Simulated scan of single mutants.
Amino acid sequence: MEALVETIVKALVDHPDEVRVEKEATDQVDIYKLHVHADDTGKVIGKHGKVAKSIRTVMNAAAVQAPKRVQLDVL
């Protein structure tokens, strides 16, 4: 899942070398923390959060077989 998020986000940002995804697992949820360059935060979130919501939708579709939910935090 980390590779999926990285691939999507690196295509959107101006500083793809600074994209980093960290996974934090709990019993019920896998939390993916996305770190990007400060200038690229707006591009990843998008107007009214539409880009971030789209990334989350793709992640949920990819995790449909997983026993846990997935969550994306943009930092």
Rank of each mutant, 00 (worst) to 15 (best):
E2S: 11
L4M: 14
V5F: 06
V5T: 05
E6S: 11
E6V: 02
T7R: 13
I8P: 06
I8Q: 07
V9R: 04
V9T: 00
K10C: 06
K10I: 02
A11D: 10
L12N: 06
V13P: 05
P16C: 13
P16W: 09
D17N: 13
R20Y: 07
V21Y: 06
E22P: 00
E22W: 00
E22K: 13
K23R: 15
E24K: 15
E24I: 14
D27H: 09
V29Y: 00
V29R: 10
V29G: 04
D30S: 10
D30A: 10
D30I: 12
I31P: 00
K33M: 04
K33V: 14
L34S: 08
H35P: 00
V36A: 05
V36H: 02
H37N: 14
A38M: 04
A38D: 11
D39G: 08
D39W: 03
D40R: 09
K43R: 15
K43D: 03
K43Q: 14
K43S: 13
V44M: 12
V44Q: 12
V44D: 10
I45P: 02
I45Y: 04
K47D: 02
K47Q: 13
H48P: 00
G49N: 04
G49Y: 03
K50G: 00
V51L: 05
I55E: 09
T57D: 03
V58T: 07
V58G: 01
V58C: 07
N60M: 08
A62G: 00
A63V: 02
V64W: 02
V64R: 10
Q65I: 05
Q65F: 11
A66K: 11
A66D: 12
K68R: 09
Q71N: 13
Q71T: 06
L72Q: 04
L72A: 07
D73N: 14
V74Q: 09
L75W: 01
L75E: 11
